[in-house]
Design a protein around this nucleic acid. Structure first.
Lengths: 155, 155
DNA sequence: GTTAATGCAAATGTTTTGCAGTATA
DNA sequence: TATACTGCAAAACATTTGCATTAAC
């Protein structure tokens, strides 16, 4: 409850501080992103938004995600999939591990990534804005599932 | 010259060792990927292939890239763009830095990624097959270009 | 009242797929 | 000769865009 209120206030502050308008759609989207456990894709966000605002349009979702990205409110991630994932920027720095079978996403701390960012930026004279460490593989339950499938075929 | 010959032989060996057919298109695509400096996208590969086989089709390129990925001949990368990039798997381990303005891709060594892979795999009980470290930002020449543009607008 | 933002529909770009014809093993 | 592979066209997705209407300021 307290969290929800805080997020709402924060979003509103950010929007008011600039010339961006705090529309119902925009506020709802920000709230849903903050509430979620992270790594939503545009389609999932759209579906959740529709539960509360039946007439919201997918292009509104995309337009606002671009804006949030520009304002630094969300990070965009590029996993081993065709679409992007989005996450509130406020959560502490972490990286991602994805199961290639079930799509489950785990987060892990990666303190070395900030040092790496500075080193590489200096070495190649780049102004680096994002660092992504993406690992992908099979989680334990999917590994087990695949093993069982293989056993069945052998019978 | 020697390199080209070696690559051709290697590709042919890999294809012959299985039931996959060494078609002219497939052989050409493998050769182009091996010859390139890495991180090609499907469209670029298609354009290069057309210079030598005018009638080759983009779907053939995509189908073969999927096959090469499955056979472990190429790696697929997900940079901050809408399409994927592909690279011969034989080259030594490295990670990528991409310019968000001009699309230029730099490669950098990241020896710590292998240790990280082992650590994270153990901690989360994942069988990790890929580790990507993607950094993105502005290269020095694009930074300068943008600064000049800003100056012009101010006049 | 201005003008930014939305909804809708259509366009764009990337990747996949069905199918009939072709070429490899 | 059997069938894997290709080319072509169309479909399937994710994302963007133009434009008339709506709503925030």
């Amino acid at each position: 409850m307290a969290k929800k209120h805080k997020t709402g206030v924060k979003s509103r502050e950010i929007l008011n501080s600039s010339s961006w308008r705090a529309t119902a759609q925009r506020t709802l989207l920000l709230e849903l992103i903050h509430q979620s456990d992270g790594h939503l894709d545009a389609c999932e966000l759209y579906q959740r938004a529709r539960e509360r605002q039946a007439r919201i349009n997918l292009s509104t979702v995309y337009r606002n995600l671009q804006l949030f990205k520009k304002l630094g409110l969300v990070n965009e991630y590029h996993f081993a999939e065709e679409h992007h994932h989005y996450e509130s920027r406020s959560v502490r720095e972490h990286q991602h591990l994805i199961c290639l079978n079930c799509g489950k996403v785990m987060e892990f701390a990666c303190p070395s990534s900030q040092k790496m960012k500075a080193d590489i930026g200096k070495r190649y004279d780049f102004d680096i804005s994002t660092v992504e460490v993406n690992m992908a593989g099979l989680c334990s339950s999917c590994r087990m599932e695949k093993r069982n499938d293989a056993d069945k075929r052998r019978i």
